[in-house]
């Protein structure tokens, strides 16, 4: 008999209540049960960072959490980063401008990670950023566009541009 539980999760500000098998990861739950396919699974063993979401304000691997563990918690996914009217987050804008993405597969995890990172490190150096995304693998960009975008977004978010 599959072990199924009912959970309540707030995702991108919207409350969901759903039945979920306990072995289901948070990543699979977001993608399959809620249809939020912006969160990507690149390795399912915690290294690539593509699956990163923001749980109660902190960036975490959604492949390394069970959906049941999100019961009663708040999750933000890449779909929840843009404003109400769809206006891009400054980091998204900067990624666009600095060619911070190619295939776009690592992008959701980069964005969610960096949004949380910038909140705690509003004025990072290039080195800080490179270490912050050392847990996010990108096979396409060589990271430079991502780093440049983050440097700029930090300035924009502090009103320094």
């Amino acid at each position: 008999m599959p072990d199924i539980r009912e959970i309540q999760v707030s995702v991108n500000g919207e409350d969901h209540s759903a039945k979920v098998e306990t072995r289901t990861s948070l990543g699979d739950f977001l993608r399959q049960n809620l249809g939020l396919t912006g969160t990507h699974l690149g390795c399912e063993h915690g290294v690539c960072g593509a699956c990163t979401v923001i749980l109660d304000g902190e960036a975490v691997r959604s492949c390394l959490m069970l959906a049941v563990q999100a019961n009663g918690h708040e999750v933000t996914t890449v779909e929840g980063l843009a404003g109400e009217e769809g206006e891009l987050h400054p980091l998204q804008e900067a990624f666009w401008k600095h060619h911070g993405l190619q295939c776009g597969f690592c992008t959701p995890g980069m964005l969610t990670s960096l949004v949380a990172f910038l909140r705690d490190n509003p004025n990072p150096s290039e080195r800080d950023i490179r270490e912050a995304i050392s847990g996010n693998i990108c096979r396409c960009t060589g990271y430079q566009g991502i780093v440049d975008a983050t440097l700029e977004a930090a300035k924009v978010m502090q009103g320094r541009v």
Partner: peptide, 26 residues
């Protein structure tokens, strides 16, 4: 036991560890 899950979950996902019960400490 499931604590932070950052070692156990990969092993569960890879089925290197196949427990009948998972006890979450969180």
């Amino acid at each position: 036991i499931l604590a932070g899950g950052q070692s156990l979950m990969p092993m569960l996902n890879m089925r290197f560890v196949v427990p009948d019960h998972v006890i979450d400490l969180n």
